[in-house]
Design a protein around this nucleic acid. Sequence first.
DNA 1: ATAAATCCTACTCTGTTAGTAGGAATATGT
DNA 2: ACATATTCCTACTAACAGAGTAGGATTTAT
Lengths: 154, 154
Amino acid sequence: MMVSTKGRYALTVMVDLARNEGDGYVSLSDIAERENLSMKYLESIISILNKGGMLMSLRGKNGGYKLAREPKDYNISEILLLTEGTLAPVNCIMQEGVQCEKAATCSTLPLWAGLDKAIEGYLSAITLEDIITGNRKKMLGDYCESCAPDGKAE
Amino acid sequence: MMVSTKGRYALTVMVDLARNEGDGYVSLSDIAERENLSMKYLESIISILNKGGMLMSLRGKNGGYKLAREPKDYNISEILLLTEGTLAPVNCIMQEGVQCEKAATCSTLPLWAGLDKAIEGYLSAITLEDIITGNRKKMLGDYCESCAPDGKAE
DNA sequence: ATAAATCCTACTCTGTTAGTAGGAATATGT
DNA sequence: ACATATTCCTACTAACAGAGTAGGATTTAT
């Protein structure tokens, strides 16, 4: 598994915030209740988003969080990268030039590098706004089987 | 991390077998020595490949393994799927119609489904032969930064 | 002052990963 | 027949990561 609940919930939080933008600062307890997730756990996740500059926060009564930018200005890759640490599909692909010592002769490395690129490419092309507006074409292509398990196209 | 050493070593084994095809059956100890991996661990991995019909095996002295088909007739997706169990990037995407109960209303599901599709698409387009022959264009596209960490294109 | 919120540190429980260990079954060469 | 080289099979273990929980300190609006 590449994306844990941490990254998934982080995205859920971002989507929830985007949907409730107008309301000023949104409290974590509201988000946790709406999304039916543990508030304590979300706390640790939203803290990463906040420190990473994705959010603005206000402490004290009536405090909470809101998006630092507009939904269209977040891509999914950056949200997941921040919370997960890496999106690399294998250990041999690591950040910034750090390489396996066999890299020069490894015949499978180009495969992993290519897979990494494919993942990065997909995720960085999609914005938070695409998710809010349900831009299925962008996310799934023209037709998505996995969305129609009963055999009917949507 | 989506692909563990299990899947990675499985691919390494397949590549090693493809490279040493002419020699009839190849023993596990030869592979382990060449690839510098624990033979005992490889044993458990190659057993999965064998039971999954990817290999032919011969017991006893001079025994070993060889590919059941030609390298061009294996795609990477099937090798990894067999050994890893799943390639799904998240828990909400599972096999054959099994779905999260919130699936119908989940706004992030299309993203995960699309990512899964992108991964599957990439991996199933590449064959074992592509790896043997070092088909970088197919694996990496026209230019690969991660292959030239010193800043020079190859 | 009180209540409602973020912020911070530390802990725990569980499952997965990455192996290791030991031996049984099978085939070959001498 | 026998020693040897191999696959095959079951079980075990140590370390790490994932998924939270717990408790309280700090800040701000009313």
